[in-house]
């Protein structure tokens, strides 16, 4: 299946990409292409120009800077899955990467591409919220850093503005007593999340000191389950606490529904998967 025609520009630096985006507001960035190319084949996206950033060296690599892990936006899911540094200091991301798509998809798809695309059923956004990640966005007026809480603004919509590029993802290094987990019901064919919940808990003496829970797949965009976080903080994360806390977390009226899963069913799944994610995170703390 051919896409519509477009002009192709390969760049070597972020600045080159920004100036091309400014010259041509209709241009789209091409990273791994695993969201964009399928959308172009279906004519859901029809850019007149593509700016290929896959060879921009400054967008690659995973490194530690103090208490922060800096992940280049062009880092592939495979690189995240196999990263010894992440396995040690932020094991949630390799676990999430491991279940995205399949190996061939993971070899091309990128973290930055996935986050910028902001598919409501993508897996990473829930973990970005649970981890308290932030995103570095660069434009012609310099750069800014946006918290995950303010990054996902709607269905396929983010805080990235016109002419800007997501360049880095910052996640905190895991500290003592912290456990993280992601639990998801996948669509059986596409592997996208029907509902996915990521949880990060900090435990001390068997009691939850801090909890962050992110949900994806169910709503128009990934979001925190703040009420649940407050409900479990200061408590042991045993079965009785979790089952009492994970009841009617979200209103079906606020959720997506389709022929795979109704909004009512998704709301039920949020309760179930939030409970599982918190229990699994507590088990790893």
């Amino acid at each position: 299946m051919y896409t519509n025609q477009f002009s192709y520009h390969r760049v070597n630096t972020v600045q080159e990409a920004i100036s091309l985006l400014q010259k041509n507001p209709d241009a789209r960035l091409l990273a791994g292409g695993h969201s964009l190319i399928p959308a172009m084949k279906l004519r859901l996206s029809d850019p007149s120009a593509l700016v290929d950033i896959s060879r921009v060296a400054e967008l690659k690599g995973i490194r530690q800077r103090g208490n922060t892990l800096v992940i280049g936006a062009m880092t592939t899911h495979s690189e995240i899955e196999d990263s010894a540094l992440l396995k040690q200091l932020c094991p949630l991301l390799p676990e999430v990467a491991h279940i995205i798509g399949d190996p061939a998809v993971r070899n091309r798809g990128t973290l930055g591409g996935s986050l910028a695309h902001a598919d409501p059923a993508a897996d990473y956004p829930a973990s970005m919220l649970a981890l308290g990640a932030s995103m570095k966005i660069v434009g012609s007026n310099g750069d800014r850093v946006v918290d995950a809480d303010n990054f996902f603004t709607g269905m396929f919509a983010t805080a990235i503005g016109s002419g800007e590029i997501l360049t880095e993802i910052h996640v905190p290094v895991k500290t003592a007593g912290v456990g993280m987990a992601y639990e998801t019901m996948m669509h059986p064919a596409s592997r996208y999340a029907i509902v996915g919940v990521a949880a990060m808990v900090r435990m001390s003496g068997g009691v939850c000191q801090e909890a962050r829970v992110g949900m994806t797949g169910a709503g128009h965009h990934a979001m925190r389950l703040s009420g649940l976080e407050a409900a479990v903080t200061g408590k042991p994360l045993d079965a009785a606490t979790l089952s009492a806390a994970c009841k009617s977390l979200v209103r079906p009226a606020d959720l997506l529904g389709d022929h795979f899963a109704s909004a009512d069913y998704r709301a039920h799944l949020v309760d179930v998967y939030a409970q599982r994610a918190l229990a699994a995170a507590a088990g790893k703390a």
Binding site: Y8, R10, I37, D52, S54, V105, N107
Partner: peptide
Amino acid sequence: AVKSCTLFAVQ
């Protein structure tokens, strides 16, 4: 391994 239906030849 890559899926060659989701890659432009130019890439």
